[in-house]
Structure formats: C-alpha cells, structure tokens
C-alpha cells in the first residue's frame, strides 16, 4: 500500500499522504476488531451451543460481552502499537506519538465503536449468520476511518469519524488537546455516549425479540 503511494502518488504531497494512510489504516484495523468483536463472539457461542448458557448468567449477557470486547480491544491496542511503529519504520515517516493527547480522544472513539459493536451483536442474536454482512462492513469501516472531516462537518454524526480526525490532527499536524475547540470535545463525547447507549438499547431490544421468537439458542 505504502509502496503504491510512493510509486503513483503525487511526490509533493507524498509525506502527508503516507502519514494520513498510516493513521487511517491503523484505525481501520482497530475498528474492525472492536466493531465486529461482539458479533463474532455471539456467532461463535451460538455455533458452539453455549449462547443460552451465557444468558443464564445473572450478570447479564451484555456485561459479559462488554468485558470481552474491552479485553480484546486492549490486546489489540498492543498489536496496533507494534503495527504503527512498523508502518513508520517501513515508510521512514514519523508521526507525533503524544500519548497524553491521543489517549482521551482514543478512549471516546473506541466507546463509539463499542456502541456499533452492540448493534451488530443484536443483529447476530436474531439472524446468527452475519458473516456476509461483516465482510461488507469492513469496507464501510474503511470509509469511516479514511474520510477526512473536511468533506463535511456533518460526518461528525457518524461513529469514529470525528475521533480519528482529531487523532490525525495530533499525530500528523502535531496538535495538542489545547488546540481543539470545546465543540470538538462536545461532538466527540456526545458521539461516544449516544452510540454506546443506542448500541446497548438496540442489543437489548434484539435480545427480547430473540427470546420472544425463541431463536436465542438456534444456529
């Protein structure tokens, strides 16, 4: 991919293009894991036949799934860090890794990813075989992580877009948390909370539908 940019890209903007691609690519990778994680988990439990047993937990299935997705995302962040440094090493392009600035934005971005993950999981609970959808979702996620906010401010209502854009600002344009407007934070936090709450509500609604239709344990 980076070789392609070097060969066919505009030499005057090559450095920026590579930096942009690295950040977007790393977030695409992260969003695929975080957004599809619970859906895969539901499908695998249904296939094994253990989904109903998971639903017998007094903790509530959504809490178990949330714990799982948090732990897998943490693992993925380690892989992601390795991937990021490898990408920088391979391309010889160095980004601003300001952990203090990146971390808060990253947390809210991931929270919105979890919201979408719950929505997908809700779908998996009823339909079960959502492999084809997950394949298509990869390209949607690619769009979300690669879209710059400069296209339209309305993109802020979509999950991930605002967060990735802010992180690109930190990593490519060397911005700090102080450089962002309060509206940026408001948009980022509202996006995360709305998607997480909406995701859990959709998931619980789908659970109820599955329990009414009697398809919870079916595969």
């Amino acid at each position: 991919m980076f070789f392609g940019i070097k060969v066919v890209g505009d030499p005057s903007s090559m450095e920026t293009n590579i930096q942009y691609t690295i950040v977007s690519y790393v977030f695409w990778f992260l969003s695929m894991g975080a957004m599809q994680g619970i859906g895969w988990s539901i499908m695998s439990e249904a296939q094994l036949g253990t989904l109903e047993q998971m639903y017998m937990s007094p903790m509530g299935a959504w809490r178990i799934l949330l714990a799982r997705i948090v732990s897998t995302t943490l693992q993925q962040l380690i892989i992601l860090a390795v991937l990021l440094y490898l990408s920088m090493l391979v391309t010889g392009t160095w980004l601003n890794i300001d952990v203090v600035s990146i971390l808060p934005v990253l947390i809210f971005t991931i929270i919105s990813m979890f919201g979408i993950s719950f929505m997908i999981a809700g779908m998996a609970i009823i339909i079960k075989q959502i492999n084809a959808f997950l394949q298509v979702l990869q390209f949607i996620l690619m769009g979300l992580t690669f879209f710059p906010m400069s296209i339209s401010p309305l993109l802020a209502v979509l999950p991930v877009v605002k967060g990735v854009d802010m992180i690109r600002g930190i990593m490519i344009q060397n911005q700090t948390l102080l450089d962002f407007h309060w509206a940026d934070y408001a948009s980022l936090i509202a996006n995360a909370i709305i998607y997480l709450v909406l995701g859990i509500l959709v998931f619980k609604r789908c659970e109820r539908t599955a329990m009414t239709k009697g398809v919870l344990g079916q595969y």
Binding site: G49, M56, P58, M59
Partner: peptide
Amino acid sequence: LKALRHISTVLEGNRNLYW
C-alpha cells in the same frame, strides 16, 4: 437477572461447556 441468581441450568445436549 435477579431471578437468575437463584437458578442454575443444565441444558439439553452438549450445550453447557466450552469444548
């Protein structure tokens, strides 16, 4: 969830364990 604190279930077949 409150009611489930009082129940444990062995469901039919091999659906209770991670193989």
